[in-house]
Design a protein around this nucleic acid. Sequence first.
DNA 1: TTGTAGGCGTTATCAT
DNA 2: ATGATAACGCCTACAA
Lengths: 370, 370
Amino acid sequence: MSNEQTELSLSEKQLASQEGTNLPLTSLEPLHTEGNKLRPTMQDVAEMAGVSLKTVSRVVNKEASVTQATRERVEAVIKSLGFRRNDLARNLRQGQTSSTIGLVIEDIANPFYSQLAQGVEYVARRYNHMLILSNSEENSQREREQVSALSHRRVAGLLIVPAGSDHSYLKSEMERGTPVIFVDRPPANLDVDMILLDSYGGSYTAVKHLLCQGHRRIGLICGDPSVYTGSGRVAAYRTALADWGIILEDDLLCFGCDDAEKAAAATQRLLSLPHPPTAVFTTSNRISVAVLRALRGVTRRLAFVGFDDFELADMLPTPVTVIAHDAAEMGRQAAELLFARIQGDERPTQRVIIPTRLIMRGSGEIPPEG
Amino acid sequence: MSNEQTELSLSEKQLASQEGTNLPLTSLEPLHTEGNKLRPTMQDVAEMAGVSLKTVSRVVNKEASVTQATRERVEAVIKSLGFRRNDLARNLRQGQTSSTIGLVIEDIANPFYSQLAQGVEYVARRYNHMLILSNSEENSQREREQVSALSHRRVAGLLIVPAGSDHSYLKSEMERGTPVIFVDRPPANLDVDMILLDSYGGSYTAVKHLLCQGHRRIGLICGDPSVYTGSGRVAAYRTALADWGIILEDDLLCFGCDDAEKAAAATQRLLSLPHPPTAVFTTSNRISVAVLRALRGVTRRLAFVGFDDFELADMLPTPVTVIAHDAAEMGRQAAELLFARIQGDERPTQRVIIPTRLIMRGSGEIPPEG
DNA sequence: TTGTAGGCGTTATCAT
DNA sequence: ATGATAACGCCTACAA
């Protein structure tokens, strides 16, 4: 073992491991105990520089009409005191917004969402806004809490990947002047801008591709079909089969495979069917990975196409054919639209569809066994 | 092609694609044009309920000493008006903080950082704080801008994955009462808490593991060695070789492979050496992936160990041996320490090391070719 | 060019 | 139990 740098183990406090302790601490009482005039204010600067508060304000905001001499004097004091304008106060006065936008997603650790977030952040910075991130954990209750918390903080706008099935609670929020954009999933009971992937088209392409290879028994492994992204993908699967005149077999459909275990179990079930599928279509990156893992070591070679691209898909023993899209671009477009709304864009509700494309890498081009 | 849902193409505006346009818009002038008494205030509620403003405040904050009757009346008005307390004003008045913490990282799309962010967010929520995320893009200039913007917004604390080589500019920030924690890399010229990975120990273990398999010519492919995480890993490599009595050959070292192209080129260079290595050690997930990609199709089988685990490492044709760690746990611990500081923890500067572990999957157990 | 007065929406303090 | 008043730190409007 390395001998150096072993100085210490994990931290002494293990608060993080108190799994059950999800109750938010009622409040952070002793937060600002010692209040010894850290944080000088404009008033402090003004007094020290021998000018009025307003003059300091002018200097700080780079307004014209300040003598060079005065400006320099004030700037010197600002520097020596380490003054920083308090944007809380500033925003309270002029805008009503905190110059931040909120992004509510399910899980930042999922590459799909982290790419989305990257796109959003990129645009937000161009508009001099910062990004508040919050995880809904696919829980509609938590989603509402997060939205509420963001609203309290007066975000300039909200980007939401919705979890629940009723979003009418957002209506009052929006009427109150907070622009809201839905991302990746449409709203229920609400008229609002949305940026969606072409789930239907992409999935149709995927299934059609398998059909073109000669497959007639195609398994479907998906998450919650009542979620929009799920339902669109399932609908495309059904339609594609119907268009080919194939009668759907319920045995080939696996729903609710939202975690790896369920996806693996579904895969096993399909494989052990008396008349198993020769191909599989999965509806999201997480499911794809879980299924591929379950498929490893299986002798029969199933064709495979997955929705969402993922890193190293091209490096697996059989490179994986996918329906790819640009999640970061979706984030950028969502943010652009949001800022347009923030700036007063009054166009009717928009509905933008981000295209998908089939990337053939091998797994989707395996012919039916037989 | 699917016929439905083709309704539209990409959005009309292509602002997002103006790659060069990085100049922040000077400001968002027309932001709040129409100012028609959206957003009722406590004063509005008070008037409508026929009580004083302070009473409304009491109800909103669930203070005692309010008659049941009064409370109900006020609550009814709050509901009917859709009143939301303005936390900007609230925080201005009582705390100095916006009940948010800032996280400055390099790239949220990198799984390492997105897991880190997840850990941070998890803890932040327990403390009723929200998370402001900002990308430094590994640019120390931008890092300073981001820190400044966060400071202006009066974040309660700052978590920074530092980019630059001089962090003394943070000193005044900290003296002014904003707790700061460094994550993944130590500071330069600054006394501050830090949470680090056991880069040295993990790397030593990796190289030792290869040595134990009999390898004597081990290539090193790393990013910028002047970055801490790089330097520690390189140092461990050198020490391990020295401990085995092996004379270091500079030809086997590749520095500055921060992007995929450079990493690929470095791999090629190693392979074409007159006396090529029999094993390779890479110092980060991005580099590992790039090198493995470059190694694909190469007939000679090189042993391989990478720092950082990555998704599907176990699924590649030769499953990849890695030095793994828990990035989310690092985020949680960093956040816990930050909140401790926020709450007034005055212990001396902490330095926490997150352990790593070797996961043997195959690529690291390939014997030297001979 | 500079300064004064008032208010943004909330909470603290001190009365009543 | 309730209310009046003064902050919090800044900006807008209007003088001087």
